[in-house]
Structure formats: C-alpha cells, structure tokens
C-alpha cells in the first residue's frame, strides 16, 4: 500500500486529523523513551486526586462508608465509554484505600457491560491489599437506567450517610441532584467529568473536581510510576503544536496566506 494509494483512499477533510494523530503517537513513544532513559517529566498536582486519600481517611475515622458512582455512559463501546474505563481506574484506587482502612464501599452504576470489569477491578484491589475475603460482589449495585440510578444513589445517601462520595465519569443532570444530596448528608464530595456541559454544576456542588482531561490522566498520576507519567508528556507537547498552529493561523490568515486553513480542511 504505497503513499499515493493511501492519499487516494483518504476521506476528504480527515487528513489533518490523521497528521495530528500520527504526531500524538510519535510524542507518546518519545515520552516513553525518555522515561526509560530515566528522564520522566514532572506532573502538576491534581488536588482532587490528592483529596481521595483524605476522603477515605475521613470515612475511616467516622466509621462511615464511601459511595462511588461512575455515572452513566451508554455502553463501553460508545463514545462515552472511555470515561467509564477512566472512572474504573480511579475506582480501583478508591477500592484499595477502602480495603486498606476497612471502609465499606458501595458502587452505584447503570452500565451492564461494565460489570465484569468492575467486578474484577474491585476483586484485584482487595487482593492487592491482602484482604480478598473483604470483597463482596454485593458492593456493586446495578440500576437499569439514569433515573433509577439517581433514585438508588439518593436512597443510599439518605440511608447510609456516607462520609465520602465520589462521582467521576459520564455525568448528566444527576450530577447536581446527587452532588447536592451528598452535601446535604455531610459527605465530602469529589467529582469529575469530561462532559463539559456538566462541569459548572459539578464545580458548584463538589468539594474537589477533576476537570475534563484530568480524569484520563488520573491513573498515571495516582500510580506515581514514571513510565505511566511519561505517557502524558506527549499530550502536552501536542498541545504546544496545536497552539503554534492556532497562532500561525491567527497571523497568516489575515495576510491572505491560507496554508493553515487549507491544511485543516485537507
């Protein structure tokens, strides 16, 4: 398959996206290479992730449970699926903390195809802490839809009065309802989503928030593993490239030089 053939079959308007994707992959592997050479990049603090331990510690001190919801994302195969997987990586960390301090954990969710992944993730988290017997599959509460899940979470918040509440993932209108209800029962709330339309509400109702892309970087951040952190460096480099493109376009377009806009339309 030569280059000319590839250009012939390339869908119109997607060439620039392909170039950016290739750059992303290249930067990703450069980041990995640097990490292997012992030069991992620094990562800024994510206060919401640091607050997870504080929230679990609070629950342990108060002898109350922790409640976690990854929101609702349709299915793992949908465009919202990555949010669910990213949320499960954070759930894994939360579960480890809960296992360590014997804090009862409840997970409320509405996505059937995520059950095997969640079940295995929680089982492994408890195993890692040397307490496999503490894992009970009944921690996982499935609700068949958005409104049933909201009702279920409201019920759990009222009955169990958790000290820590995490809502991280694909969140919609429920974010303000359950976030405010969690605040009402005095739970420390940590929220996060990449659904931009919900961010204002989550910021209003939560104590700590993961904004947009931060939920995808959370696992690497939590692991403190230079190899994982290195994979995020490339993301910042591509941002610089995109900013440079924007700046160039800003300067060249008014001068009638259309290279940038032609490239973006390619």
């Amino acid at each position: 398959m030569n280059t000319l053939y590839l250009e012939q079959i390339l869908f119109a308007g997607r060439g620039s996206s392909l170039v950016v994707l290739i750059l992303l992959v290249v930067f990703f592997f450069i980041g990995l290479r640097l990490a292997k050479m012992g030069r991992p990049p620094k990562m800024r603090r994510l206060p919401a992730m640091d607050a997870i331990d504080e929230a679990i510690g609070r629950a342990a001190e108060m002898g109350k449970p922790a409640l976690y919801t990854p929101g609702i994302t349709g299915s793992l195969a949908s465009e919202q699926g990555p949010q669910m997987v990213a949320s499960i990586t954070i759930l894994s960390y939360v579960a480890e903390g809960c296992a360590r301090y014997d804090v009862p954990l409840i997970v409320d969710f509405a996505q059937g195809d995520a059950i095997p992944l969640m079940d295995e993730t929680l089982r492994l988290a408890y195993l890692k802490q040397g307490k496999p017997e503490k894992y009970d599959p009944k921690m996982l509460n499935y609700f068949p839809g958005q409104s049933p899940m909201v009702t279920g979470i409201l019920g759990h918040l009222q009955r169990l009065r958790p000290a820590a509440f995490f809502m991280i993932g694909g969140l919609y209108y429920e974010s303000v309802v359950i976030g405010e209800a969690a605040n009402f029962v005095g739970a420390m709330t940590i929220g996060g989503t990449a659904n931009t339309h919900q961010l204002p509400f989550i910021i209003a109702v939560c104590d700590y928030v993961l904004i947009g892309e931060e939920i995808y970087a959370a696992s690497a951040y939590l692991s403190k593993d230079p190899y994982q952190i290195a994979t995020i460096a490339g993301e910042d480099w591509i941002k610089f490239v995109l900013m440079a493109l924007l700046l160039l376009g800003f300067i060249l377009e008014p001068l009638g030089i259309k290279y940038i806009s032609s490239f973006l339309r390619w």
Binding site: L21, L24, V25, F28, L32, P82, V85, A86, I88, T89, S92, Y93, L117, T121, A194, G212, E213, E214, I215, Y216, A217, S219, A220, S223, D225, Y227, Q228, T231, I232, G234, E235, I238, K239
Partner: peptide
C-alpha cells in the same frame, strides 16, 4: 486529546489498573 492518550495507554498496557 485525553481520550486518545488514554486509549493509547490502554492499548499498550500502560494503564495497569484496567
């Protein structure tokens, strides 16, 4: 960008939690 990088990490096994 976060989604793409997350997907890459999953694909190469760097996202160890999942």
């Amino acid at each position: 960008l976060g989604i793409v990088y997350f997907g890459l990490r999953v694909a190469i096994g760097a996202e160890k939690r999942v």
